[in-house]
Design a protein around this nucleic acid. Sequence first.
DNA 1: TTTCTTGCAAACATTTTGCAGGATA
DNA 2: TATCCTGCAAAATGTTTGCAAGAAA
Lengths: 165, 165
Amino acid sequence: MSDLESVSVAISPKEKYREYLATQRLRMTRERSIIVEEVFASHEHFDADQLIQRLDQRSDGKRVSRSTVYRSIKQLEDAGLIRKVARQDDRDLYEHDYGYPQHDHLICKKCGELTEFHNEQIKEILETVAREFGFRIESHRLEAHGLCKNCCRRPQDRPSKLNLI
Amino acid sequence: MSDLESVSVAISPKEKYREYLATQRLRMTRERSIIVEEVFASHEHFDADQLIQRLDQRSDGKRVSRSTVYRSIKQLEDAGLIRKVARQDDRDLYEHDYGYPQHDHLICKKCGELTEFHNEQIKEILETVAREFGFRIESHRLEAHGLCKNCCRRPQDRPSKLNLI
DNA sequence: TTTCTTGCAAACATTTTGCAGGATA
DNA sequence: TATCCTGCAAAATGTTTGCAAGAAA
């Protein structure tokens, strides 16, 4: 089960989902239950297709159709349980939002590795900036793109025309 | 004040494009010329479709096909002339990169307004974080989502089902 | 003349939707 | 029972690509 370290979670993701559904007069079905469990069974980032595959590989025969997965992902997003991290290979990538502390990402353009980090100052700076524009921030997304530690170490990748600034 | 940061543009976007094409042994064609001119004719953010429409509306009959626009957008990106800002309505949004200082965006979730801002500290913080992970940053993208000044002023938008957790 | 480009239409990939039968409160 | 939900297949959408004709070097 997922480790509830940094943020104290009052109720499980599934319960939170159920609450959301209730506010919308929607139902907690077998399929939605399977999906929310599968989504929170691992803390990896995922896209729709990966989730569908994970569900297909289940040995318990609890399959869910592609359409339903897409429909549920949207609901989980609306419910604040997951959120889009980035786009990768033309797909939306999601991660857990509920029960997980705010963080941002370093994204390696070569190997695609996602490194999470957290920095309080960024939020503070954003608040200051937003105040100036009368903007009310609800969330933010920060991605730094470049080369991860591993991919930095390959001299043959960089052609000779280095940017000597 | 050292002006090396605030981008002094030596050559025009079109010349810069030509340079890039040369390094790739590609040609500056009539179509590419039209596109780069149109892209830099206004400083608005744009997506592929908007650019195509702008080109279609030209009275001088300088039409360019959809495929060529897509192909050129990719090249302009590779050439460092434009870059993706965000996704909006399932489309990639682009903005000028060449000759324009680094900045980030406040994005209104209601009206879609994009507000640009610049803050030096963010870059510094990112550098510090990256150092810690041995990551080499080449660029970053920061979007704050929420409500712009105008859209903040409408109390009737928020339904009563507030998150009371 | 050789290679690169274009426009077109068809192909693609992801995501959405209409609908009929099935499930839930 | 009155909705709501699902799976399917078809549709929609944004983007890419193969190809034959045309243009640039």
